[in-house]
Nucleic acid binder design. Structure first.
Lengths: 285, 285
DNA sequence: CGCGTTATGTAATTTAATTACAAGATATCT
DNA sequence: AGATATCTTGTAATTAAATTACATAACGCG
């Protein structure tokens, strides 16, 4: 694990003064690696030995060794760490934290996602007679987004964020149909029911949800992300971004599988939007 | 240029002893970063000042600084870059590329976003009598997501992805109302109209859109992201993720501005979801 | 071959980091 | 509540590391 993450993770096992050191380092990591122990101690308003003890607590040999590790962390591909937003944060602070936490979450997701399952999901999707995306609450917007993407592929795709519609749709599903159920926790009862109903009717059910959750058990294929979420905010943020990226990946896999001539079809859809736009370049939405 | 490359490049401009130092470092770079100047001098069979001079020749402040640079080189930072998906990419390749491109986009967005505007947007939102989120196409799901977030704050919030509804809503807006228009390009004619109508009716219009676009011109406040987009896929991907993160930031700023007691209210909303869930831990959607 | 220039090493100095210890704070138990 | 133990933290002393200043050696060139 890299030192930056380690600091963030063990932030509660720190003492008051160590905490001060951690804050200063996290706030200006670049400055830290070019500072002496004395300078850092002064910035954090603690004594030099405290800084030293802080370094040792993180399993480094001492301050110079700590700086080395820190330098590597910063240079590494994962400079982003999940940092919690705090009460007294100003706009710069929370903006930076949210961007960084999201990037950190995506990095984690990338490492944990199972490529084989993705590949199989793409397989199933490309052969689907009909694709349905179901989500509730925050996951509903992910489902909508998925619909927007797959709709461009000229395949029958529906999306419902209404339990009754979802239920009706699930009951009417048949072999060859693919149902994608999206839920961060995988514990939304209604959605579990939908998944079960769809499977009883021989549809293939793909779950974009937590590993080992009740919903996961109802699915044919589970794409789990297991992204750490900032519970302080009481809102799904990073997890939902990861879900969206996963959808992007499925959509991309889909187009690649369908080949070049299919891509031309995509371009046609995009061009069709041009009429609704003001001139200059071309682009979507 | 990283230090390792620099050593290799300037290997012929070195003196005999410096060359010895370079050889030792190139042979065991990992060892070097954990050695003292004395140890390295001994390994290279030169004096300590020679090592020091070697470091300075490479434009570092001295030996410790050189070790820092070397450590960073070794961490071989593959920072996130926007890598385009290609026809022949397999599942691992396109999965990695999409994750990385998205992270790169977020990184760009973070650097370009204007904190002042964010702060002002949060200001306006906290004082809003009513908040409306409008988007079309792919941006509609971003608008939905925003609604889902702000709805938890117990403020009057609406979201329409239908031009007619948007239009009616815009016409009925009044001073103190805030309208958020979301569009990647900012060239969707219908949305520009909506923004203009809302402003004519004294609403504050926040645009989450491209800088200097037709839509931007109609807005009171413009939050531009200017994220590079992979045009090959003909789908908005990274841009929409950046928009979502921006919404997260606005929502976070909102809750922070409203203070602690308000956060308890948020928790209440979250807890209310519990009944619809299977047990174990608690979380959203 | 001798002079000037550059390269290198030795020893002194300075700077930085660590250790040892003591005082203060905090928790725990009676 | 008070006393004792434990954990934190800081001050001062010590040690280690790096840098500088200077001297000597190697090398190139007329």
């Amino acid at each position: 694990m890299n030192v930056l993450e380690k600091i963030v993770n063990s932030v509660n096992s720190f003492s008051k003064s160590e905490r001060k050191v951690a804050d200063v380092i996290l706030a200006n990591p670049q400055t830290t690696i070019h500072s002496s122990i004395a300078a850092l101690a002064k910035m954090a308003d603690v004594s030099e030995p405290t800084v030293n003890r802080f370094c040792r607590r993180l399993d480094t040999k001492g301050f110079p060794d700590f700086k080395l590790h820190l330098a590597q962390s910063l240079a590494n591909g994962t400079p982003y760490v999940n940092r919690h937003v705090e009460e007294e944060d100003g706009p710069e602070a929370y903006t930076a934290k949210i961007f960084e936490s999201t990037m950190a979450a995506l990095d984690t997701a990338r490492q944990r996602v199972d490529i084989n399952t993705i590949n199989r999901a793409v397989d199933v999707l490309t052969q689907a007679k009909k694709i349905s995306f179901f989500g509730l609450g925050a996951s509903a917007s992910v489902a909508h987004d998925a619909q927007n993407k797959f709709f461009r592929f000229n395949v029958p795709v529906v999306c419902f964020d209404d339990i009754v519609m979802q239920r009706m749709s699930a009951i009417n599903s048949a072999e060859g149909d693919v149902v994608v159920c999206i839920s961060h926790t995988g514990r939304t009862k209604n959605l579990c029911d939908i998944a079960a109903i769809a499977r009883e009717n021989d549809a293939t059910v793909i779950g974009v949800t937590a590993y080992d959750s009740p919903l996961a058990k109802e699915c044919t294929l589970v794409l789990s992300l297991d992204v750490p979420e900032d519970t302080d905010m009481y809102m799904p943020m990073a997890s939902r971004v990861a879900q969206l990226v996963l959808i992007d990946i499925l959509a991309t896999g889909f187009t690649l599988r369908r080949g070049t001539k299919f891509r031309e079809n995509l371009k046609k859809v995009k061009d069709s939007l041009r009429g609704s736009r003001f001139d200059k370049k071309d682009f979507n939405n």
